[in-house]
Design a protein around this nucleic acid. Sequence first.
DNA 1: CCAAAAGTGTTTCCGATACACCCATGA
DNA 2: TCATGGGTGTATCGGAAACACTTTTGG
Lengths: 235, 235
Amino acid sequence: MPFTYEYPRQALTVDCILFGFDWAASRGGELKVLLIERLHDPFRGSWALPGGFLDEADPTVEHAAKRELAEETGLTNVFMEQLYTFGDAGRDPRGRTVSVAYYALIKLADHPVRAGDDAGNARWFSLSEIPALAFDHDQIIRTASERLRGKVRYQPIGFELLPRKFALSQLQNLYETVLGQKLDKRNFRKKILKMNLLVEGNETQANVPHRAARLYQFDQQRYEELLARGFNFEV
Amino acid sequence: MPFTYEYPRQALTVDCILFGFDWAASRGGELKVLLIERLHDPFRGSWALPGGFLDEADPTVEHAAKRELAEETGLTNVFMEQLYTFGDAGRDPRGRTVSVAYYALIKLADHPVRAGDDAGNARWFSLSEIPALAFDHDQIIRTASERLRGKVRYQPIGFELLPRKFALSQLQNLYETVLGQKLDKRNFRKKILKMNLLVEGNETQANVPHRAARLYQFDQQRYEELLARGFNFEV
DNA sequence: CCAAAAGTGTTTCCGATACACCCATGA
DNA sequence: TCATGGGTGTATCGGAAACACTTTTGG
């Protein structure tokens, strides 16, 4: 059942960049990106970002991104933000395709991943060990990483990337990873605590071969206040 | 000559938001936006953003935006940045249309505007007196205004919006207009001069009924250095 | 000489930075 | 008892903010 139009039309796709923070990575945390293995041509067998064609039934483009993500990786309830639209001629060997990319930050532990219908496999890759990707997806990931580095300055990204309860050193480690630079421990703590964004819990780490760290949580209400009124976290 | 595809495709358009700064506007400057009057349905006779369909021959989406802008308003050599992609169902009465919006800042004086082929008229409107617009173009303009307010904090926008030679009070007025708040004259001057971004000229304003202001220019080279290394202009 | 905008310094305050040692825990 | 990371305070510096009067020009 073909579809016919008076003028040529380009294909419209969405792609999803999901970032997770892997605290357990040996000696310092790592940022990871979720990739799927393509089951169909073009680039069959290659790793790629989850994504696919916009559907007539999708009420919004963002909806299409969430739908494709769920279909290919099983992930749901992910808050996505639009990143950028990629549409250079030649980015898809099938013909002109324009892709709207969305990105999200999620807690790795809360979102187990499984391969879905259109994907042979789904896996988290460290940013530093990403294989050759289909289409211009390496370029998309670079753009997303830059955006993340920018976002960290005016939004508390730990809220989305860390487990509900975390040690301050984990939060600092996350910032150091995203920003690519070491931060002073005492100054970091002073600054982050002064924001009144964190609630000190009663628990501490368990089974660590050193003094156990106190665990904190984000204060949801305070977080929303900060977002609404504008926020600034200069390093 | 119809075009046929195996799966349904959405129409892809581009829209251009051009901002200009009108210094002469009585009592303080005004931000203006370029609009065109639509010659064809839907929304024939309405004011709208310049824009149109992506063409198969456009090598990039940005190229499509520049091409449409030139066709409808005669403006060329405009540096555009991608703003956001708008694709909610229902934003176009003809059917599903996804639009990639681009925005640019230009010097009003350097870019005289004329109506082009597909536009009955082209005119600058103050942000405060924008008429009812076609599609969701009011929403697009709101998004662009917010982006501009954000951009002002890390890029010297005066470079793009002001005439080549300008008085410091013009620059301050621009910042006040974009940010929507008054700034302290002495502090503003100190800060902007300390950046070494401005070159003091020999000339002064002519024919003003008060003390003539010294005129400055941006230092192109210093500007590029700042852009490259990152830039911060907190109010 | 009046109206209107140009131009000019100092003080205060706060946040950013730099910096080193003791503490708790499990092995 | 040792290795490992957790936890803590102070001094200095620099940029941000507040603030008012004199100068120049055309009408």
